[in-house]
Design a protein around this nucleic acid. Sequence first.
DNA 1: TTTCATCTTCAGTTAAACTTCAGGTAATGA
DNA 2: TCATTACCTGAAGTTTAACTGAAGATGAAA
Lengths: 220, 220
Amino acid sequence: MTHILIAEDEFDIRELLTELLESSGYHVTSAANGMEALKLHQSATFDLMILDIMMPYLDGFEVAQQVRKTSQTPIIFLTALQDEDNQVKGFDLGIDDYIAKPFSLRILLRRIEAIIRRIQANAEEQLSFREITLFPASYNVLISGKDIILTLKEFQILHLLLENPGRVLEREQLIQQLWGFDAFGDTRFLDTHIKNLRKKINVPYIQTVKGVGYKLEATN
Amino acid sequence: MTHILIAEDEFDIRELLTELLESSGYHVTSAANGMEALKLHQSATFDLMILDIMMPYLDGFEVAQQVRKTSQTPIIFLTALQDEDNQVKGFDLGIDDYIAKPFSLRILLRRIEAIIRRIQANAEEQLSFREITLFPASYNVLISGKDIILTLKEFQILHLLLENPGRVLEREQLIQQLWGFDAFGDTRFLDTHIKNLRKKINVPYIQTVKGVGYKLEATN
DNA sequence: TTTCATCTTCAGTTAAACTTCAGGTAATGA
DNA sequence: TCATTACCTGAAGTTTAACTGAAGATGAAA
């Protein structure tokens, strides 16, 4: 979950922003001044920081400067200071965006999204179901955070199941997709792969639908 | 060198921007309308696109939409349209910044830098993975600070792996990229290069994913 | 031309992955 | 309940992909 730090001394604005962002699905932590923000930054990891410039104890510039010494966490300045010099000063400290008050909440949200999107463009894609996590690019699979070694066929089967959670994949469909031929004659080899896969992942989510195929589903 | 595409129908503004960005050290290509911009995007790779919204043939929205279908190239809208709906529409298409005319050149520059900075967080002056460090420009490789002499093919393979740490590079993909032909018939020569590379770097990070390819990953 | 490093080919080996098999088990429907 | 069918399973057998060391080919430099 994306974790955002807000530093803003005015209570009303701080609350407004917190509510707005939380209702948009972000996890928000807020600080009433720059010193507090900096301490929070040092004790936790944030995906994004929104800083007011004019705050007691430490202003936004100073916070940004400190943060940038050790971290690349994206920073947005939110401020009543409209003049160009302050904007330039901010960007030169390495901030990512500068939004002047009064601002539109919709646009603030969009700008936040734009930055988050850009960061997460570099993150590896992953597919999850309960304690199973599969990384298509690295061919890695984690069960409850633990690495599991799968063979290619096992990986591919699990991948297909994870792409269609809850949906039954027919035997013929699976074989068609992974072996590239239409199933004919004996297809017991599929059972064997399923067996081995089940044993390795050791969680009871691969369910048999007799006469049809297999699906990924939790029992309760 | 950072390559920027500018799409702007007004000649004066286009020239002004081109000069400004070139004098700041960017490589600039410009287009006089959306259609031209889209074609340029399809024939070359840009690090950033600056699009005017109101242009003949294809407007900025349409260009952005097309680009986003296949590419994550950062996009900045530069426009006289100040209203909120257009800004929101832009961000929802996946653009990275929205700058309203009239704009300050200094601030435009800073916003461009902010985006480039965020993307090129891993500026390719040097690539590292654990005790491996590779310098693309000088074709040098260090392992734990010690110089290692690699042949060209070995270097190229390691380079590709370092650019995609953790990601499996398929055999065909590697051969396609380094030899420029589609793999067919006997491709055992790849194994040989991998073998020699492994022996030289003498760290256990090049892992085989049987039936797929190779990846760079630490074992623990 | 000779030399040398590099790249590619080759063939034997190894180890992993995949498939087959056969006996057992569970679900299904008459 | 019983018969049938489909699926499960462990073990054995087969195939295939990758590894390896050595030898041959290539091409640039001396």
